[in-house]
Write a protein that binds this DNA or RNA. Structure first.
Lengths: 242, 242
DNA sequence: AGCTGTATGTGCGGTAAGCCACTTACGTGG
DNA sequence: CCACGTAAGTGGCTTACCGCACATACAGCT
């Protein structure tokens, strides 16, 4: 059977790449490459999902928008995970939005195929659940971080998490949008980003952030980044079963 | 086979109560009633779990403690759910603590039994995953709420969520401990609780909170409470499959 | 009744960040 | 190379909350 995905698509998503060869062969005919543009809405609050998406070069933010229009991010998914966990967790819909934060590609799989394959209970199920647990850690840490840390610390956390999920040293993202993600005003981002720029950690020009020195970002960030990173490494690392 | 649980233990936890009779019969011999005292630690940061717990009359908070000792709650589980999701999600440990917030009973099940039963893929697995998705919503909303809402609004949310999971109109909880849960100072809780008392919503006397008027609490809370409640009802309601 | 420990109430100065109004800088397209 | 739209920087005022230092109040014990 001819696969619609590109030959090396597999290695572009770490969750899929970690599957044993036979399971991957079983899935690959059902993966279609798609392309996400910046700001595209992958799913809406309460919307029924028809597909799950395995990002390859894109990053997708999960965020919640309040009644008064303010919003905040709860977590973000890159090529280490999957967007649309409600489909295998059983709920069908999620009470939040998923928005493309960094343009790029993804592999999509239909709801039915996903659910059938999940029900087989093999490595695929195992990997999806482990990823979900890692995501729970990320969301939890976001909750704690929102309560206890400064905007500057959170900006560092966010930049590091994003940088880990993208191939380049440049992020395309306005301060306005980062404000929406972090649930702070645009001006707050400006001030915090200005300090990071003075420190030499980043350079910021009209929607293009260049990561110049990760070490400075890590030193300025709160412990939350490391907690999330460690847990992702532990749960999704190569040594894990299947 | 004689069950070690009390005859009506089943109906005390809604997750178990929703199982079809044959599945419940299969599980019940493996459920042992245990009793939790206030402040007891169910599991520690990174600790290996040997059991999962299905609270019946107790409430267990999931919280994270920072390096500097401050802490914040990410979610709480009562008789609608289960404590120790890492055991079936595959991680084995969680990077947070679980602390008994309201003394009472629970039913425990060993890790091995849980994992074997989960792997069968029936209604039990289905229910556990749906609960996990509901918990994700709760944690997500906590993250958003921490960022965007006042201490008073969050206190209302917390009181309502706790009240929903306990049988009486009285919560046993000092303002100091609520401060730890919400990630705010004890004095901040005092001020917010004082206002709620002036409004006639609660009465607070030395660690005993009496819920006098839920309607006032709901009006004062942010939308976060309703979002979480709706999602729990949707995902865990009686109409859901199996 | 009085003692003592824990729980709660209150006030004050400091700070992070919100809101608002505005200026400056870049950069693409005419 | 100029204009205009979008992105970023700045400053002043206000607010919510923190940190600290106390004052009070209840509850069980003697």
């Amino acid at each position: 059977m001819a696969t619609l995905s590109t030959p090396d698509a597999r290695v572009e998503n770490r969750l899929l790449a970690a599957l044993p060869p036979d399971e991957y062969e079983r899935l690959s005919p059902n993966l279609q490459p798609v392309s996400f543009s910046l700001g595209e809405v992958v799913y809406e609050f309460g919307g029924q999902l028809s597909f799950v998406y395995f990002p390859t070069t894109s990053i997708v933010s999960l965020l919640y928008t309040m009644e008064n229009g303010t919003s905040a991010e709860m977590g973000l998914t890159g090529n280490d995970g999957v967007v649309g966990i409600a489909l295998f967790m059983g709920g069908g819909t999620m009470p939040n939005r998923a928005v493309v934060q960094s343009a790029g590609g993804a592999l999509r799989m239909s709801a039915k195929v996903l659910q059938d394959q999940f029900a087989l209970g093999g490595a695929f199920q195992h990997r999806l659940l482990r990823y979900t647990q890692a995501l729970i850690t990320q969301i939890s840490q976001t909750a704690v971080c929102n309560r206890l840390h400064t905007v500057e610390q959170q900006l560092c956390r966010w930049l590091l998490l994003s940088h880990d999920r993208v191939q380049a040293d440049e992020l395309v993202m306005t301060q306005e949008l980062i404000g929406d993600m972090l649930g702070v005003r645009r001006e707050g981002v400006t001030v915090a980003a200005g300090r990071l720029q003075d420190l030499g950690a980043i350079r910021y020009v009209r929607g293009h952030i260049k990561i110049l020195d990760r070490a400075i970002l890590e030193a300025t960030a709160c412990e939350c980044y490391q907690v999330v990173k460690d847990e992702f490494d532990r749960l999704l690392g190569g040594d894990a079963v299947g």
